[in-house]
Every structure is written in C-alpha cells, then in structure tokens.
C-alpha cells in the first residue's frame, strides 16, 4: 500500500505528475479550481499506486508527498 498526498492549494495543474505516473493513477480535476485558480491534480486510482514517486520527481512545485 502506498499513499500520495498533494498540497492541493499550491498545485498549478501542469499535469506533469499525471504524465509521469506509470500506473495512470492520477488525473486533473477539471471541474475544480484551487485558490490559485488552477484545476489541481488528484489521486483517482489509489489501488494501483506502487509508491514509485515518479509523480513527485517531476512535480515542479514540489507539492507531492509519497509514503509507502
């Protein structure tokens, strides 16, 4: 079991984490806006996450924490 948490208010919705995930766990919440005005990334498929931290490695804003 792995856990990925986002500092959602600081996300800029760039999607680089979504593209980096080898398990297609992540998505951009197109129907939401954070206080910065961006649609943030979120975990859509927790079951598949392997805790590889590829998402966090590519996040330019350093807002992802990964636990395993």
């Amino acid at each position: 079991m792995a856990k990925v948490t986002f500092n959602t208010d600081m996300c800029k919705g760039c999607g680089l984490c979504v593209d980096a995930c080898p398990k297609q766990c992540l998505a951009i919440a197109q129907d939401k806006l954070n206080p910065k005005g961006y649609s943030p990334a979120y975990m859509k498929d927790q079951e598949k996450c392997i805790g590889c931290a590829f998402c966090a490695t590519m996040c330019p804003d350093c807002i992802i924490t990964v636990e395993k």
């Binding site: 792995a2 680089l16 330019p60 924490t65 990964v66």
Partner: peptide, 27 residues
C-alpha cells in the same frame, strides 16, 4: 508507512512564482 518522498528542508515554504510546469522548480 515510511516517507518515500517529501519536500527537502533546504526549500522554504514560499510557493514558487514560476509558470505551471516550469522546470526551474525541479532544479
């Protein structure tokens, strides 16, 4: 559960002003 990845201590809490997806943040 152990932490596999977290923000390094040598970065402050200030949010980066860079554009979305700008690799300055990664570097």
């Amino acid at each position: 559960m152990a932490i596999v990845f977290e923000k390094p201590k040598a970065l402050t809490d200030a949010p980066f002003h860079y554009c979305p997806g700008c690799p300055h943040g990664i570097i």
